[in-house]
Design a protein around this nucleic acid. Structure first.
Length: 421
DNA sequence: ATTCCTTTGAAGTAT
DNA sequence: ATACTTCAAAGGAAT
């Protein structure tokens, strides 16, 4: 049986990479996993103050921008340094977005230019192992679903094809034979989830925020919450087609549909078409960082007075980078299993299925601002021009820059010319 | 009521 | 092959 972390032939895990961030200036010293540094707080609070103090004046706006830049520098530094510290095969994301700002020292005058495909289920779906899927489990705590006990006792299930074709003609990454090992089916098909042993028993999902106000032990709370807390989604439509509720399945678009599902089977006089349109959405499996956030968010909230998720997430991002390889490996492994389980449960599902379900103003903004084609940064055109009786060589630059810190994109044209007789 | 913000990673699309 | 985009969670803030 394939071993965890063997990596051999595991396409799914191929993208699980470790990050080693050990050389980021001030963060060189490793931040203990459970220690919320005062610097985190200070940074965050100062950033919040800076943001809130902004006024409409240009000077203040500049100050805000600078403050924002300072606050976000750590992340940018990480991004910039990422390639230097990636392990083999590490994917580098959005490098361009975080490259040095074009602001500094700009020497020129600038002329601004204005899972349930068709309801079909794989045969696997009726054979969901009892092992709690990671979706339903607080990923950190228990790790229970992924404990060695579960894996080591698993027998290779004949029900699970080594390679699942998820969509017609679409070859998804091969399911490796270790999947059954992760989610073993007890001999004799005992592994089927019964209505009483489904996702309800797991509380991956956050307790009410007030529950985090007290000193918090993730292991304790998560473990203790197994039977006491039920994810709200599970009350409604978070059901797998097998009848197995799964946190990844949520009503298509939030509360309204939730209400629809919550009304305990009351027949809703809806047009058939509308009903079809409201198929529950199968969420993406959580990646390593998301799993980490789920676990650590509560701690961070408990350790500071911050509530804003954006601020919390900044801290979590920094702490994530401060984790050791081993610590991160734990989450990468969890995430890998999440994906594997997700693939088993929703063989035909694709992340694309959820595309376009979020309306984003930023997307529109970006499209607007980039609608005037962003010329290749640094591109230069040089052409002779006729100016009266003289000729001029005009060098024309289009400089396109984008500042992620300021969420500002602009294209500038600049030129200089030399008269040639 | 809806979207934004903010993070990283996976997976999708576009070139 | 590479670059870029979208979404996953969270919840206060902004629209």
């Amino acid at each position: 049986m394939p071993q965890l972390g063997s990596g051999g032939g595991d396409d799914l895990g191929a993208t699980d990479e470790m990050l080693a961030f050990k050389d980021e200036g001030e963060q060189e010293e490793k931040i203990p996993e459970n220690a919320f540094t005062e610097r985190d707080l200070a940074d965050l609070k100062s950033s919040l103050v800076n943001e809130s103090e902004g006024s409409g004046s240009p000077a203040a706006a500049a100050a805000d921008a600078e403050a924002l830049r300072r606050v976000q520098d750590p992340q940018r530094v990480y991004q910039e340094k990422l390639p230097d510290h990636m392990d083999d095969g590490m994917k580098h994301q959005d490098p361009g977005m975080y490259k040095g700002s074009a602001y500094s020292g700009y020497p020129f005058l600038m002329l601004s230019d204005p899972y349930l495909p068709n309801g079909s289920m794989s045969p696997l779906s009726n054979k969901v192992p009892v092992v709690q899927p990671s979706h339903g489990v607080h990923p950190l705590t228990p790790l229970i679903p992924y404990s060695n006990d579960h894996f080591s006792h698993g027998s290779h299930s004949p029900h699970l094809p080594a390679d699942i074709n998820q969509k017609q003609g679409v070859h998804r990454p091969s399911q490796t034979s270790d999947i059954p090992g992760f989610y073993p089916l007890p001999p004799g098909g005992v592994g089927q989830i019964t209505p009483s042993m489904g996702w309800q028993s797991q509380s991956v999902y956050p307790l009410p925020s007030c529950g985090f106000r007290q000193p918090y032990s993730s292991a304790l709370s998560a473990g203790a919450s197994f039977s006491r807390f039920t994810h709200p989604l599970m009350l409604g439509s978070g059901m797998h087609t097998t009848g197995i509720p799964h946190p990844a399945i949520v009503p298509h678009s939030g509360k309204q549909e939730m209400e629809h599902y919550d009304r305990n089977m009351k027949p809703q006089p809806e047009p058939k078409r509308e009903k079809e349109a409201k198929k529950p959405t199968i969420k993406k499996p959580l990646n390593a960082f998301m799993l980490y956030m789920k676990e650590m968010r509560a701690k961070v909230i408990a350790e500071c007075t911050l509530k804003e998720s954006a601020a919390i997430n900044q801290i979590l991002g920094r702490r994530w980078h401060a984790l050791s390889r081993e610590e991160q490996a734990k989450y990468y492994e969890l995430a890998r299993k999440e994906r594997q389980l997700h693939m088993q449960l929703y063989p035909g599902w694709s992340a694309r299925d959820n595309y376009g379900k979020k309306k984003r103003r930023t997307r529109e903004k970006q499209q607007d601002s980039s609608s005037g084609k962003c010329v290749q940064p640094g591109s230069c055109s040089c052409f002779p021009a006729q100016m009266g009786e003289s000729k001029a060589v005009v060098v024309f630059y289009h400089v396109c820059f984008y500042s992620p810190e300021l969420n500002y994109r602009n294209t500038h044209s600049l030129f200089f010319s030399a008269m040639v007789n």
